[in-house]
Design a binder for these strands. Structure first.
Lengths: 130, 130
DNA sequence: ACAATAGTTCGATGGCTGTCAAACAATGAA
DNA sequence: TTCATTGTTTGACAGCCATCGAACTATTGT
């Protein structure tokens, strides 16, 4: 469970990790916000569209952790890298988990706000769910 | 989210904490095993019956974190302290979460098995005694 | 009263990890 | 080619936190 050194896997096509690894990946506020944002939009999200208050290197680190837990997939498109939540695989491994994360009211610790598009999609998802 | 210093609350009668705090509380392998064990038995569990490979002070620390997240309740009975999972409250706040934790197959990092640890220690004790 | 049991609290500590800046790699545009 | 954009990697660092031992409190039993 070392997120600093190469955490197990770089290929995201494998299975979702064990529950302990998944929980640890979700335990960070920034990563939780990223996952919630990914779950809110069906379209893959570009890396730089995450409006989290961290540098790109830190963001890359968080992506690696999420990838290592088998929670996301990334596909290069030009210089960009589109990220998608592996919703089907996660739901198959841990039914209802993503749903719980999305539905949970979340107070952001450090104005961990996302951009307006993401917020709108979250609102849309909430409207659909509600 | 500081688990070292006094983490918010000592009274466990309040609501379950926000999802970020809950996830961080569950992210530790020892605490996850404790919660899974608590979820497995309807009866409250005595503190010393957790066969996790940590000292009692560390165990006390983990109980405080779980209490701070609103996941457990503790009630003194003589010198003992019985611990119960706040299953109803957790289910109300995050439906299906405990179910996910219980159902998830868990590989233990350091033979962190509860019932098996008991069996193994008994076997070891028997082997030593016999 | 005395000892034993059950937990808590307090310091200290080592390892983990989230964070950043800088350097690097890859791709697309001028 | 040259520059701009995007993201990764590396090294360093600070803070958090799981862990322990020791001292302490509280309750029960002898």
């Amino acid at each position: 469970m070392n997120t600093q050194e190469f955490a197990g896997r770089s290929d995201p096509s494998g299975p979702v990790a064990d529950i302990a690894t998944v929980l640890q990946a979700l335990a960070d506020p920034v990563r939780l916000a990223m996952v919630r944002s990914l779950a809110g939009s069906v379209e893959p999200i570009c890396c730089s569209s995450f409006q989290v208050p961290v540098t790109k290197s830190t963001l890359s680190h968080h992506f690696r952790v999420l990838r290592g837990a088998g929670l996301i997939e990334q596909r290069a498109e030009g210089t960009r890298k589109l990220t998608t939540l592996r919703r089907a695989e996660i739901d198959a491994a841990y039914p209802g988990l993503v749903e719980t994360l999305v539905r949970a009211p979340l107070e952001l610790p450090e104005s961990l706000e996302l951009d307006e598009a993401v917020r709108e999609s979250e609102l849309a998802a909430g409207a659909l769910a509600g």
